[in-house]
Design a protein around this nucleic acid. Structure first.
Lengths: 224, 224
DNA sequence: ATAATAGTGTCTTTTAGACATTATATT
DNA sequence: AATATAATGTCTAAAAGACACTATTAT
């Protein structure tokens, strides 16, 4: 069986977090060649001894590099070709992940707002990040994806702000609450927010009902 | 830089075609070990000398194995792990493709209806095919994907049948025509179908306006 | 009382789906 | 005329969006 110069397969993770109402991506500067000192996605090689599959490899990278166990990890796409790495033909499998900012203690300064990214990233990481942002924005429209960056307790207004930040647009309050009620993904904790902080009427606190990603049924686009 | 026993990267193509109102997948029997004689997806190694990227590799496989230049080729996902190939840790990038049955001359007998697949496929190809069918069914609901298997001229009823086959459900005629009109993806050729064949009222013939995949805007699920 | 945000009610527009009606071909 | 399918019209129900109104806290 001919060996066709097997290309190297790596994985990269586009890690999103919300900071001060901005959707941000982790892009620490590279410590090695090529693209030394340029901002890049976190990633690495697959350890076939250790990693059950690529998903496990991505989990390991997140655990080792920033010390988190993420509840959300989704395969984006494989990016490949002769040009993306100066060393030759290569392929990288990009994952999207998402955490609450309070779970991050190191490398906070390496997060960039998606609307103000560094102009040049290592490899083809600019294309990967743009693709990932598009996916996140779109998926926020019809799923419970934004729930993954909420703390354990939150108000509906806070949840709405997160949805708006991730979607990149504003939503009507009544419509938003109607949909959240319909999705049936949050339940009241019985507690209220502290009015002393906001100088205004306290809001009911809610918590997530489950940790799975839930999609709105859109099977209604062209079916009976 | 440590070499972590680089996994082998291959590509596989889930090729769909419509035969007699059934959505079918190409699964020829394997000519080599492992899984000799078992039905499997078509695929192969990446030729880093020849292939610009994985997309080009998938195109080459389709061209060489069944002699088609497909207008539709979409990356599905990377499937990986230690268990899927008895020879060890491996990864394959699955693509979805779709052709009109008239473009296929060889291997017609190797197509299986998706509702009546062989129980056992080589590697993890059962899982890949199921995933691909799900994607096709779902994407048919809100896009012009079914247009890719239409001949150059067709009636709206024929188009509806193809949509129904690919979606796996029936649609109301009036609603279907309303949506197609809205999408603005077909135009009348001016010609009519031959009533001598059907013994009934002739139908207007249409042709596709463009060859790009068009999605319905569903940005309305949770936005302003 | 005033400011500020929480929370809900109601109206309009859009879209989907079901069903009925008319039109045009063949035998 | 009878039959079969093409093509369109109309009604209803569900959903999305806009906007206004009421409620509850602090100062």
């Amino acid at each position: 069986m001919t060996n066709y110069d097997d290309p190297i397969l790596t994985i990269d993770v586009v890690l999103f977090a919300l900071m001060e109402n901005h959707l941000c991506v982790l892009l620490p500067k590279r410590q090695t060649q090529p693209f030394l000192d340029q901002p890049a996605l976190i990633g690495g090689y697959i350890h076939t001894q250790e990693d059950k599959d690529t998903h496990a490899a991505a989990m390991r990278v997140l655990q080792n590099k920033i010390g988190i166990k993420t509840p959300y990890l989704e395969q984006l796409a494989l990016f490949s070709g002769r040009e993306r790495d100066p060393r030759g033909w290569s392929a990288t499998l990009a994952y999207i992940s998402m955490v609450h900012i309070t779970h991050i203690d190191k490398m906070k300064s390496d997060f960039y707002p998606v609307d103000d990214l560094p102009k040049i990233l290592a490899f083809d990481h600019s294309a990967i990040v743009h693709w990932a942002v598009k996916r996140i924005r779109s998926k926020s429209e019809y799923s419970t994806l934004p729930m993954f960056v909420m703390p354990t307790e939150f108000t509906l207004t806070e949840l709405q702000h997160v949805y708006e930040t991730m979607m990149g647009k504003t939503i009507d309050k009544a419509t938003f609450r109607y949909k959240i009620r319909e999705l049936d993904v949050v339940k009241p904790t019985g507690r209220m927010s502290n009015p002393k902080i906001t100088n205004t009427r306290p809001a009911r606190l809610y918590q997530a009902i489950d940790t799975k990603l839930r999609l709105k049924q859109w099977n209604k686009s062209m079916g009976s």
